[in-house]
Design a protein around this nucleic acid. Structure first.
Length: 495
RNA sequence: GGCGCAUUCGUCUAGUUGGCCUAGGACACCUCCCUCUCAAGGAGGAGAUCGGGGGUUCGAAUCCCCCAUGCGCUACCA
């Protein structure tokens, strides 16, 4: 087999979504596995749909996932340029060549006529062909007239009227189409820009792309591409049509499915490691049990043979679980400081405004060990640990009425805490010792006592381990909060 | 409507040339253990007559045919 060269060829019409980027990932994994090249090519041939900033967001998404490209925007390469809008002369040249060899023709039909024609066909429920081939048989004289009148024209491919076109798909096997189903697709639009079909064939040829791995939605147009290669006298690449990623409603993923853009996942606190791993599992599997795999492992094992044929629905729950796995793994392998470093931006943006900025990184490193295994997304962190940063706790005094303890006992318990925590060491073992003996003296079970103090000190019922939490909060803050809780209890006349 | 592709637990999937599948794993769900709460972790449970119907075969989720359903394409969009 020749050198492996694959490409990711997005069109800059918006933020890449999960499906787009999964295609990029598969191409990248394949290239890295085979020691080949991963090319990024921007297919900006639709002037109308172009979106400002889209290229940047595409590259950002790739960078975030760590999908480095060997050729393409910013890095260049020997096969450039990598923006189709800069290769117009190439496409025009081959459109002209096809015209001259009689394999294409000029079409002067106005798009209004075409859409009207399609509407009528649909109305009559006719076997729809998108174009009635009117200009295919235009006499040279008539064509000349239209030309001299300045009627704009597109160049259409003269598709064979009969026979069949077949090709091997690496994932689906042999695919066959009757040529009678094919229409005369436009190669060059009247504005001089190529359509996807022409541009993709010309570019893949000249960029020496060996494998075209693209979404399933392209399967239907592949025979036209194969025919185009033949018309140009070129050898087509190998094709692998990837199963699509569907929205929860099982339809093609689009903006209307909510959180689908890749960058959004970054902003919601997903780790790139988890994202890469999870995306790789959408349509590909190593075996019947291995799921958590790092980048290197993915590269080592990736193969087209193990790509599945069936479309997949994106399962957010599982992604979140996997992100949790990676968070814990990150702490294990790279330590708390690294986790804190990644968490910091989310704290900066997610903690209440009244918390002083910048957030103290040193302090965060002491807190995150208590929180990292209680969170699946970095963005969940602020809400989970905000009480470490607030001066005034805001909570319902009713929470202080713990099950198994009446108001009087609670008041006595808080007073006991205040008394005994005023001096002596304030590390978590010392605190625990004090609290346990206090429970014993008051004839209380430890559980309810701890629950009461938990609410007093954090304002909530679910928190990291109490004594560690108190140690990090520090004696002063704990005492102040215990006093405040006491005051709340005393002033309340609740039953 | 036409064409193409697909169809295994709710979801992601394993199921190499038919037998080891009374269909395996994971997420989510439930129970229990651990435990100061919440998590994490551990152990279990429930959940798929492999879309349906016909074949072929000693034997089929795996091969063939038909049907159904879903999705995709059917643009001078990609």
């Amino acid at each position: 087999m020749d050198r492996v060269r694959v490409r990711y060829a997005p069109s800059p019409t918006g933020y890449p979504h999960i499906g787009n980027i999964r295609t990029a990932l598969f191409n990248w994994l394949f290239a890295r596995h085979m020691g080949g090249s991963f090319i990024v090519r921007i297919e900006d041939t639709d002037q109308a749909r172009k979106v400002e900033g889209a290229v940047e967001s595409i590259l950002d998404s790739l960078r975030w996932l760590g999908l480095d490209w060997d050729e393409g925007p910013e890095v260049g390469g020997r096969y450039g340029p990598y923006f189709q809008s800069e290769r117009l002369d190439l496409y025009q040249r081959f459109a002209r060549q096809l015209l001259e060899s009689g394999q294409a023709y000029r079409c002067y039909c106005a798009s209004e006529r075409l859409s009207q024609m399609r509407a009528e066909m649909a109305e009559r429920k006719e076997a729809a062909r998108s174009y009635d081939r009117r200009c295919r048989s235009l006499s040279p004289g008539k064509a000349g007239d239209l030309e001299s009148q300045g009627v704009p024209s597109a160049i259409r491919f003269k598709a064979p009227l009969e026979g069949q076109t077949a090709f091997q798909d690496l994932i689906r096997g042999e695919i066959t189409f009757d040529n009678s189903e094919l229409d005369d697709l436009v190669l060059l639009k009247s504005d001089g820009y190529p359509t996807y079909h022409l541009a993709n064939v010309v570019d893949d040829h000249f960029m020496e792309v060996s494998h075209v791995m693209r979404a399933d939605e392209w399967l239907s147009s592949t025979p036209r591409h194969v025919l185009l290669y033949a018309a140009l006298g070129w050898r087509p690449p190998l094709y692998a049509h990837l199963p699509m990623i569907l929205g929860p409603d099982k339809s093609k993923l689009s903006k209307r499915h909510g959180a689908t853009s890749v960058v959004e996942y970054r902003d919601r606190g997903f780790l790139t490691e988890a994202m890469v791993n999870f995306l790789a599992l959408l349509g590909w599997a190593l075996d019947d049990k291995t799921e958590v795999m790092g980048r290197d492992e993915l590269i080592r094992h990736f193969s087209i043979e193990r790509i599945s044929k069936t479309a997949a629905i994106f399962n957010q729950d599982k992604l979140q679980w996997m992100n949790g796995v990676y968070i814990r793994q990150l702490v294990e392998k790279q330590g708390h400081a690294e986790f804190a470093r990644r968490a910091l931006p989310f704290l900066e943006s997610g903690l209440p405004e009244r918390v002083k900025r910048p957030i103290d990184g040193e302090y965060v490193v002491r807190i995150t060990p208590l929180a990292y295994e209680r969170v699946n997304l970095l963005s969940e962190l602020p809400a989970r640990i905000d009480f470490f940063f607030l001066d005034e706790l805001d909570y319902d005094a009713g929470l202080l009425v713990v099950k198994g303890m009446d108001r009087e006992t609670a008041i006595a318990a808080l007073r006991g805490c205040l008394q005994r925590l005023g001096g002596g060491p304030f590390d978590h073992t010392a605190i625990e010792g004090v609290m346990r003996s206090l429970a014993e003296e008051l004839g209380l079970k430890p559980g309810p006592l701890f629950g009461l103090v938990r609410v007093a000190v954090t304002g909530r019922t679910a928190t990291p381990p109490l004594f560690e939490t108190m140690a990090v909060l520090g004696r002063d803050r704990c005492l102040r909060r215990l006093e405040s809780a006491l005051a709340r209890l005393e002033s309340s006349h609740a039953a």
